[in-house]
Amino acid sequence: MFETCTARLALFYMSCGMRLYVSGGNSGIGKETAVALALRGARVIIACRDEEKARKAVKEIKARSHSMNVLHMEVDLANMRSIREFCKTFLQKEKRLDILINNAGVPSVLDWTDDNFSMCFGVNHLGHFLLTNLLLLRLKESSPSRVLNLTCSSYKYQKLDFKDLNYNLFPFFTYCRSKLANIYFTQELARMMEGKGVTAYAIHPGYVQSSWTCHYSILYRIFAQVVMFMFFISCEAGAQAVVYCAVSDEVLPHSGGYFADCRPAPLRAFARDSGVAKKLWEASERLVKLA
């Protein structure tokens, strides 16, 4: 995958002069994406809830990209008030938003957000849903612009239950549903923004050697690290698909599509249901109290 994506990106290694926001840009795929796009001349804003980690990440991204146009802003995607405050500050300070990368996420953990949503669904879907909607006007003003939602091929193992969107009985199933929600969200956003200069893409970056194991016990972390070392790809390789969808004009005809390995990928039939996508959008609006 890494070699394929790198080859396809070769034609797009130029200064893009864009302004972008990366959630979860302090580590993993988010940080590698920030480095790659800063190298291309982008103004990069990364956001996370830990200010100390963010400062260290900004320092590293600047050093590796040789760009001083990198900064951080604080936001907690598990807290709707924090998201609203972040967006208010962002809109006051930033006059353009060319690319919004919804990268931050949590693995399959049995926990709850500050607003009493299951952690996976609350952060991986609802947090990004609210943030994107609050920044949507700026995206339209900056058109042509793009929204990139990171998802996972594990979406195929679950379907949404609208009687219990906040499902949190089996953490892995909750995670799968949140990744499916990312896909539906992307599809409905693309439909709503058709002809308005904003395109949207759902991206499966592959199974990556990231720091998601920090949520688990030391024994599980050791086991997971061994498995990741043997079978998973690096964060740098995983970021290639994200960078490709951010800068390549080849993706423009595929707004609303699902990408893997730097190309459009097929989805299971149930994940292409526009009626479910619209229903999820409307339910999400109610849950985050989006007027």
Rank of each mutant, 00 (worst) to 15 (best):
residue 191 R to H: 08
residue 11 L to I: 04
residue 17 G to S: 05
residue 270 F to H: 03
residue 176 C to T: 07
residue 19 R to Q: 13
residue 120 C to I: 06
residue 70 V to R: 00
residue 157 Y to D: 08
residue 288 V to N: 06
residue 31 K to D: 03
residue 12 F to R: 11
residue 82 S to E: 07
residue 202 A to L: 02
residue 127 G to H: 07
residue 64 R to Q: 10
residue 55 R to E: 14
residue 199 T to V: 09
residue 165 L to R: 10
residue 156 K to Q: 07
residue 255 S to A: 01
residue 45 I to P: 03
residue 209 Q to N: 15
residue 238 G to H: 14
residue 265 A to N: 05
residue 95 K to V: 07
residue 78 A to T: 01
residue 285 E to F: 00
residue 7 A to C: 11
residue 151 T to E: 02
residue 67 S to D: 01
residue 284 S to K: 05
residue 285 E to Y: 03
residue 134 L to D: 09
residue 17 G to E: 10
residue 33 T to A: 01
residue 141 E to R: 11
residue 168 N to S: 02
residue 111 D to Y: 09
residue 209 Q to S: 13
residue 2 F to C: 15
residue 73 M to V: 00
residue 82 S to G: 02
residue 120 C to L: 10
residue 81 R to K: 15
residue 132 T to R: 11
residue 10 A to W: 02
residue 163 K to Y: 15
residue 218 I to Q: 15
residue 161 D to H: 09
residue 40 R to P: 08
residue 62 K to S: 13
residue 256 G to K: 02
residue 5 C to H: 06
residue 122 G to S: 03
residue 170 F to Q: 14
residue 223 F to M: 14
residue 176 C to S: 07
residue 2 F to S: 15
residue 178 S to Q: 03
residue 272 R to M: 08
residue 99 I to R: 09
residue 93 K to M: 11
residue 284 S to C: 00
residue 181 A to F: 05
